[in-house]
Protein backbone atom coordinates (compact mmCIF):
# COMPACT_ATOMS: atom_id res chain seq x y z
CA UNK A 1 0.00 0.00 0.00
CA UNK A 2 1.30 3.40 -1.03
CA UNK A 3 0.06 6.40 0.95
CA UNK A 4 0.97 9.91 -0.14
CA UNK A 5 0.00 13.13 1.57
CA UNK A 6 1.58 16.43 0.63
CA UNK A 7 1.50 20.21 0.48
CA UNK A 8 3.66 21.98 -2.06
CA UNK A 9 3.66 25.32 -3.89
CA UNK A 10 4.26 25.32 -7.63
CA UNK A 11 4.19 28.44 -9.83
CA UNK A 12 2.26 30.25 -7.11
CA UNK A 13 -0.35 27.49 -6.88
CA UNK A 14 -0.80 25.53 -3.68
CA UNK A 15 -1.23 21.83 -4.29
CA UNK A 16 -2.43 19.85 -1.33
CA UNK A 17 -4.06 16.45 -1.33
CA UNK A 18 -3.46 12.86 -0.40
CA UNK A 19 -3.97 9.58 -2.17
CA UNK A 20 -3.67 5.89 -1.47
CA UNK A 21 -2.82 3.18 -3.97
CA UNK A 22 -3.28 -0.43 -2.98
CA UNK A 23 -1.02 -3.24 -4.12
CA UNK A 24 -2.29 -5.02 -7.19
CA UNK A 25 -4.70 -2.17 -8.00
CA UNK A 26 -4.44 0.72 -10.39
CA UNK A 27 -5.17 4.23 -9.24
CA UNK A 28 -5.94 6.94 -11.77
CA UNK A 29 -5.12 10.53 -10.83
CA UNK A 30 -7.38 12.47 -13.12
CA UNK A 31 -7.94 16.16 -13.73
CA UNK A 32 -7.35 18.99 -16.19
CA UNK A 33 -3.85 20.07 -17.23
CA UNK A 34 -2.16 22.16 -14.56
CA UNK A 35 -4.28 20.72 -11.76
CA UNK A 36 -1.25 19.35 -9.88
CA UNK A 37 -1.24 15.71 -10.94
CA UNK A 38 2.38 15.34 -12.04
CA UNK A 39 3.50 17.04 -8.85
CA UNK A 40 2.06 14.09 -6.92
CA UNK A 41 4.19 11.75 -9.05
CA UNK A 42 7.30 13.83 -8.35
CA UNK A 43 6.66 13.88 -4.63
CA UNK A 44 6.05 10.13 -4.62
CA UNK A 45 9.26 9.41 -6.53
CA UNK A 46 11.32 11.79 -4.39
CA UNK A 47 11.96 14.12 -7.33
CA UNK A 48 10.26 17.02 -5.57
CA UNK A 49 10.34 17.86 -1.88
CA UNK A 50 6.99 19.01 -0.46
CA UNK A 51 6.73 21.78 2.13
CA UNK A 52 5.12 19.23 4.34
CA UNK A 53 3.78 15.73 3.97
CA UNK A 54 4.75 12.10 3.85
CA UNK A 55 5.12 9.16 1.50
CA UNK A 56 4.69 5.72 3.03
CA UNK A 57 5.14 2.44 1.22
CA UNK A 58 4.04 -0.73 3.03
CA UNK A 59 4.56 0.98 6.36
CA UNK A 60 8.03 2.26 5.46
CA UNK A 61 8.57 6.03 5.39
CA UNK A 62 10.08 7.30 2.14
CA UNK A 63 9.36 10.97 2.75
CA UNK A 64 8.42 12.83 5.90
CA UNK A 65 8.96 16.57 5.98
CA UNK A 66 7.48 19.65 7.61
CA UNK A 67 6.20 17.82 10.68
CA UNK A 68 7.48 17.83 14.22
CA UNK A 69 8.84 14.33 13.70
CA UNK A 70 12.24 13.49 12.27
CA UNK A 71 12.58 14.40 8.61
CA UNK A 72 12.98 11.54 6.16
CA UNK A 73 13.80 12.04 2.50
CA UNK A 74 14.93 8.88 0.78
CA UNK A 75 16.69 9.83 -2.48
CA UNK A 76 15.00 8.67 -5.73
CA UNK A 77 17.66 6.07 -6.52
CA UNK A 78 16.90 4.20 -3.28
CA UNK A 79 13.11 4.11 -3.69
CA UNK A 80 12.75 1.40 -6.32
CA UNK A 81 9.94 3.30 -7.97
CA UNK A 82 9.47 2.89 -11.72
CA UNK A 83 8.31 5.82 -13.84
CA UNK A 84 7.05 5.77 -17.42
CA UNK A 85 6.46 9.31 -18.55
CA UNK A 86 5.06 11.11 -21.54
CA UNK A 87 8.40 11.05 -23.33
CA UNK A 88 10.38 7.78 -23.38
CA UNK A 89 13.49 9.42 -21.87
CA UNK A 90 15.89 6.95 -23.45
CA UNK A 91 19.55 7.85 -23.07
CA UNK A 92 20.58 9.00 -26.56
CA UNK A 93 24.25 8.04 -26.25
CA UNK A 94 23.46 4.41 -25.40
CA UNK A 95 22.10 1.61 -27.59
CA UNK A 96 18.70 0.05 -26.91
CA UNK A 97 20.46 -2.90 -25.25
CA UNK A 98 22.46 -0.57 -22.98
CA UNK A 99 19.32 1.38 -22.18
CA UNK A 100 17.54 -1.82 -21.15
CA UNK A 101 20.42 -2.87 -18.91
CA UNK A 102 21.00 0.62 -17.52
CA UNK A 103 21.84 0.58 -13.84
CA UNK A 104 20.99 -3.10 -13.45
CA UNK A 105 24.58 -4.12 -12.73
CA UNK A 106 24.32 -7.10 -15.04
CA UNK A 107 25.45 -7.65 -18.59
CA UNK A 108 22.94 -10.19 -19.84
CA UNK A 109 19.49 -9.58 -21.23
CA UNK A 110 18.41 -13.17 -20.41
CA UNK A 111 15.91 -12.27 -17.65
CA UNK A 112 14.33 -9.70 -19.95
CA UNK A 113 13.92 -12.01 -22.95
CA UNK A 114 10.19 -12.76 -22.53
CA UNK A 115 9.46 -9.05 -22.32
CA UNK A 116 11.75 -8.25 -25.26
CA UNK A 117 9.87 -10.82 -27.27
CA UNK A 118 6.45 -9.59 -26.19
CA UNK A 119 7.38 -6.01 -27.05
CA UNK A 120 9.11 -7.07 -30.29
CA UNK A 121 12.35 -5.34 -29.38
CA UNK A 122 14.68 -8.08 -30.65
CA UNK A 123 15.60 -6.40 -33.96
CA UNK A 124 16.11 -3.04 -32.26
CA UNK A 125 18.65 -4.05 -29.62
CA UNK A 126 21.70 -2.54 -31.29
CA UNK A 127 19.90 0.58 -32.57
CA UNK A 128 20.35 4.03 -31.06
CA UNK A 129 17.30 5.85 -29.65
CA UNK A 130 17.50 8.45 -32.43
CA UNK A 131 16.83 5.68 -34.96
CA UNK A 132 13.58 4.56 -33.30
CA UNK A 133 10.04 5.69 -34.06
CA UNK A 134 7.97 7.17 -31.26
CA UNK A 135 6.14 3.89 -30.63
CA UNK A 136 9.36 1.85 -30.64
CA UNK A 137 11.00 4.23 -28.20
CA UNK A 138 8.05 3.94 -25.84
CA UNK A 139 8.20 0.13 -26.03
CA UNK A 140 11.87 0.27 -25.04
CA UNK A 141 10.97 2.61 -22.21
CA UNK A 142 8.26 0.19 -20.98
CA UNK A 143 10.69 -2.74 -21.07
CA UNK A 144 13.40 -0.75 -19.29
CA UNK A 145 11.08 0.21 -16.43
CA UNK A 146 9.18 -3.07 -16.09
CA UNK A 147 12.39 -5.07 -16.43
CA UNK A 148 13.40 -4.36 -12.87
CA UNK A 149 11.82 -5.14 -9.54
CA UNK A 150 9.95 -1.96 -8.73
CA UNK A 151 7.88 -1.58 -5.59
CA UNK A 152 5.65 1.01 -7.22
CA UNK A 153 4.92 1.86 -10.84
CA UNK A 154 4.08 5.43 -11.83
CA UNK A 155 2.67 6.30 -15.25
CA UNK A 156 2.65 10.01 -16.03
CA UNK A 157 0.48 10.72 -19.09
CA UNK A 158 2.12 7.78 -20.84
CA UNK A 159 2.13 7.78 -24.63
CA UNK A 160 0.83 11.34 -24.84
CA UNK A 161 1.48 12.66 -28.33
CA UNK A 162 1.42 9.27 -30.06
CA UNK A 163 -1.44 8.65 -32.46
CA UNK A 164 -4.63 7.04 -31.13
CA UNK A 165 -4.12 3.59 -32.63
CA UNK A 166 -0.55 3.32 -31.31
CA UNK A 167 -1.65 4.55 -27.91
CA UNK A 168 -4.40 1.93 -27.68
CA UNK A 169 -1.94 -0.79 -28.69
CA UNK A 170 0.63 0.27 -26.12
CA UNK A 171 -2.01 0.48 -23.40
CA UNK A 172 -3.17 -3.05 -24.13
CA UNK A 173 0.44 -4.23 -24.07
CA UNK A 174 1.05 -2.50 -20.77
CA UNK A 175 -2.21 -3.93 -19.47
CA UNK A 176 -0.98 -7.47 -20.32
CA UNK A 177 2.49 -6.94 -18.91
CA UNK A 178 1.22 -5.52 -15.65
CA UNK A 179 -1.13 -8.51 -15.42
CA UNK A 180 -0.47 -10.12 -12.08
CA UNK A 181 2.03 -7.55 -10.80
CA UNK A 182 1.26 -7.18 -7.10
CA UNK A 183 2.41 -3.60 -6.66
CA UNK A 184 0.56 -0.28 -6.55
CA UNK A 185 0.25 1.29 -10.00
CA UNK A 186 -0.54 4.99 -10.34
CA UNK A 187 -1.66 6.54 -13.63
CA UNK A 188 -1.79 10.28 -14.18
CA UNK A 189 -3.93 11.47 -17.08
CA UNK A 190 -6.04 14.39 -18.21
CA UNK A 191 -8.14 12.27 -20.57
CA UNK A 192 -11.02 10.42 -19.00
CA UNK A 193 -11.00 7.76 -21.70
CA UNK A 194 -7.45 6.70 -20.85
CA UNK A 195 -8.19 6.53 -17.13
CA UNK A 196 -11.45 4.68 -17.68
CA UNK A 197 -9.67 2.04 -19.75
CA UNK A 198 -6.94 1.47 -17.24
CA UNK A 199 -7.73 2.36 -13.64
CA UNK A 200 -9.61 0.51 -10.90
CA UNK A 201 -9.74 3.47 -8.53
CA UNK A 202 -9.84 7.15 -9.22
CA UNK A 203 -8.99 10.43 -7.57
CA UNK A 204 -10.18 13.61 -9.24
CA UNK A 205 -7.98 16.70 -8.91
CA UNK A 206 -8.78 20.29 -9.73
CA UNK A 207 -6.82 23.44 -8.85
CA UNK A 208 -4.49 21.50 -6.59
CA UNK A 209 -7.26 19.89 -4.51
CA UNK A 210 -8.92 16.51 -4.53
CA UNK A 211 -12.58 16.74 -5.47
CA UNK A 212 -13.25 13.13 -4.64
CA UNK A 213 -11.98 9.60 -4.80
CA UNK A 214 -13.23 6.05 -4.84
CA UNK A 215 -13.66 3.13 -7.18
CA UNK A 216 -13.79 4.20 -10.83
CA UNK A 217 -17.16 2.55 -11.51
CA UNK A 218 -18.86 4.05 -8.45
CA UNK A 219 -17.46 7.53 -9.10
CA UNK A 220 -18.49 7.57 -12.74
CA UNK A 221 -21.96 6.24 -12.02
CA UNK A 222 -22.69 8.56 -9.12
CA UNK A 223 -20.44 11.64 -8.91
CA UNK A 224 -20.85 13.21 -5.49
CA UNK A 225 -21.25 16.80 -6.72
CA UNK A 226 -22.22 18.62 -9.89
CA UNK A 227 -18.64 19.93 -10.20
CA UNK A 228 -17.31 16.40 -10.04
CA UNK A 229 -19.92 15.17 -12.51
CA UNK A 230 -18.89 17.85 -15.01
CA UNK A 231 -15.26 16.74 -14.84
CA UNK A 232 -16.31 13.12 -15.29
CA UNK A 233 -18.13 13.73 -18.56
CA UNK A 234 -21.67 14.64 -17.50
CA UNK A 235 -22.54 17.39 -19.95
CA UNK A 236 -26.08 18.37 -19.13
CA UNK A 237 -28.04 18.97 -15.93
CA UNK A 238 -31.79 18.98 -16.33
CA UNK A 239 -34.10 20.45 -13.70
CA UNK A 240 -36.73 17.89 -12.75
CA UNK A 241 -38.32 19.06 -9.55
CA UNK A 242 -37.90 22.40 -7.84
CA UNK A 243 -34.15 22.82 -7.68
CA UNK A 244 -33.36 19.14 -8.20
CA UNK A 245 -31.41 18.29 -11.35
CA UNK A 246 -30.43 15.04 -12.95
CA UNK A 247 -26.95 14.61 -14.40
CA UNK A 248 -26.88 13.39 -18.00
CA UNK A 249 -23.86 11.53 -19.35
CA UNK A 250 -24.09 11.35 -23.19
CA UNK A 251 -23.08 7.69 -23.13
CA UNK A 252 -25.93 6.82 -20.75
CA UNK A 253 -28.85 7.93 -22.88
CA UNK A 254 -31.03 5.62 -25.01
CA UNK A 255 -33.30 6.62 -27.88
CA UNK A 256 -36.51 5.22 -26.42
CA UNK A 257 -38.87 5.85 -23.56
CA UNK A 258 -38.39 3.15 -20.89
CA UNK A 259 -39.42 4.35 -17.42
CA UNK A 260 -38.16 1.11 -15.86
CA UNK A 261 -34.57 1.93 -16.74
CA UNK A 262 -34.29 5.56 -15.75
CA UNK A 263 -35.63 9.04 -16.37
CA UNK A 264 -37.75 9.54 -19.47
CA UNK A 265 -37.27 13.02 -20.89
CA UNK A 266 -39.14 14.70 -23.76
CA UNK A 267 -36.76 16.34 -26.19
CA UNK A 268 -36.76 18.67 -29.16
CA UNK A 269 -34.41 17.73 -31.99
CA UNK A 270 -32.32 20.78 -32.96
CA UNK A 271 -30.20 19.10 -35.60
CA UNK A 272 -28.95 15.68 -36.73
CA UNK A 273 -25.79 14.56 -38.44
CA UNK A 274 -24.81 11.18 -39.83
CA UNK A 275 -21.36 10.50 -38.45
CA UNK A 276 -20.95 7.07 -40.04
CA UNK A 277 -20.85 5.10 -36.81
CA UNK A 278 -24.27 6.41 -35.88
CA UNK A 279 -26.38 9.54 -35.85
CA UNK A 280 -25.39 12.52 -33.75
CA UNK A 281 -28.30 14.52 -32.33
CA UNK A 282 -28.30 17.98 -30.85
CA UNK A 283 -31.27 17.87 -28.49
CA UNK A 284 -33.04 20.36 -26.27
CA UNK A 285 -34.08 19.01 -22.84
CA UNK A 286 -36.11 21.65 -20.99
CA UNK A 287 -33.77 24.65 -21.09
CA UNK A 288 -30.62 22.58 -21.62
CA UNK A 289 -28.87 21.18 -24.65
CA UNK A 290 -27.41 17.70 -25.08
CA UNK A 291 -25.27 16.26 -27.86
CA UNK A 292 -25.61 12.51 -28.09
CA UNK A 293 -24.79 9.82 -30.65
CA UNK A 294 -27.05 6.80 -31.08
CA UNK A 295 -25.38 3.92 -32.88
CA UNK A 296 -28.40 1.84 -33.86
CA UNK A 297 -31.61 3.66 -32.98
CA UNK A 298 -33.10 6.69 -34.60
CA UNK A 299 -35.26 9.09 -32.69
CA UNK A 300 -38.81 9.12 -33.89
CA UNK A 301 -39.12 12.75 -34.94
CA UNK A 302 -42.74 12.81 -36.09
CA UNK A 303 -44.31 12.22 -32.73
CA UNK A 304 -43.10 13.83 -29.47
CA UNK A 305 -39.61 12.32 -29.26
CA UNK A 306 -38.41 11.07 -25.90
CA UNK A 307 -35.17 9.62 -24.58
CA UNK A 308 -34.35 7.75 -21.39
CA UNK A 309 -31.44 8.88 -19.25
CA UNK A 310 -30.29 5.63 -17.66
CA UNK A 311 -30.41 5.58 -13.90
CA UNK A 312 -29.04 9.14 -13.49
CA UNK A 313 -27.70 10.78 -10.31
CA UNK A 314 -29.93 13.50 -8.85
CA UNK A 315 -28.49 16.72 -7.39
CA UNK A 316 -30.02 19.09 -4.86
CA UNK A 317 -29.83 22.91 -4.90
CA UNK A 318 -26.39 22.85 -3.23
CA UNK A 319 -24.99 20.67 -6.03
CA UNK A 320 -24.66 17.59 -3.82
CA UNK A 321 -25.84 14.19 -4.96
CA UNK A 322 -29.13 13.12 -3.37
CA UNK A 323 -29.00 9.60 -4.77
CA UNK A 324 -30.07 7.94 -7.99
CA UNK A 325 -33.16 8.42 -10.03
CA UNK A 326 -36.13 6.63 -8.55
CA UNK A 327 -38.73 5.63 -11.10
CA UNK A 328 -41.58 6.99 -8.99
CA UNK A 329 -40.71 10.43 -10.30
CA UNK A 330 -41.85 11.10 -13.82
CA UNK A 331 -40.88 13.92 -16.07
CA UNK A 332 -43.84 16.02 -17.22
CA UNK A 333 -44.10 16.73 -20.91
CA UNK A 334 -44.56 20.45 -20.36
CA UNK A 335 -40.97 20.65 -19.08
CA UNK A 336 -42.00 20.74 -15.41
CA UNK A 337 -42.22 17.72 -13.16
CA UNK A 338 -44.68 15.96 -10.90
CA UNK A 339 -44.85 12.98 -8.63
Amino acid sequence: MLAVDFLITRHGQTIEYSYEARSGRRLGIFGPSGAGKTTAIEVTAGLATPKSGSVTLDGRLLTQVGTSRTSVLLPPHERRIGLISQRPQLFPHLSVRENLLYGKGQRTLAPLLPMIERLELGPLLSARPSQLSGGEAQRVSIARTLGRSNQVLLLDEPFQGLDDRLRRELLLLLDDLLGALEIPVVLVAHELELVAQFADDLIVIENGRALGSGSLAALLREPATVAMAKILGYTTFVTIHGSSRIGVHPERVIAEADPTRGCVVPVTVLSTRDVGTGVRYRLRLGDQELVVTFADHRLDQDDQPRVTVLDPPVYGHDGRCLGRWSSTVAFAEDGGSNR
Binding site: G82, G103, R148
Partner: peptide, 27 residues
Protein backbone atom coordinates in the same frame (compact mmCIF):
# COMPACT_ATOMS: atom_id res chain seq x y z
CA UNK B 1 20.38 18.88 -19.93
CA UNK B 2 16.91 17.33 -19.94
CA UNK B 3 15.75 17.16 -16.33
CA UNK B 4 13.30 14.37 -17.15
CA UNK B 5 16.14 12.25 -18.47
CA UNK B 6 18.26 12.90 -15.37
CA UNK B 7 15.28 12.00 -13.16
CA UNK B 8 14.86 8.76 -15.09
CA UNK B 9 18.52 7.88 -14.47
CA UNK B 10 17.99 8.45 -10.74
CA UNK B 11 14.89 6.28 -10.68
CA UNK B 12 16.80 3.56 -12.52
CA UNK B 13 19.15 3.50 -9.55
CA UNK B 14 21.89 6.04 -10.27
CA UNK B 15 23.43 7.93 -7.37
CA UNK B 16 24.02 11.61 -8.23
CA UNK B 17 27.70 10.79 -8.83
CA UNK B 18 26.95 7.86 -11.16
CA UNK B 19 24.43 9.97 -12.97
CA UNK B 20 26.96 12.73 -13.53
CA UNK B 21 29.54 10.39 -15.03
CA UNK B 22 27.13 8.18 -17.00
CA UNK B 23 24.60 10.71 -18.29
CA UNK B 24 25.43 14.38 -17.70
CA UNK B 25 29.07 14.23 -18.72
CA UNK B 26 28.77 12.07 -21.88
CA UNK B 27 25.80 14.10 -23.11
Amino acid sequence: LDQGMLDQASLLGDTPRQRFFRISLPL
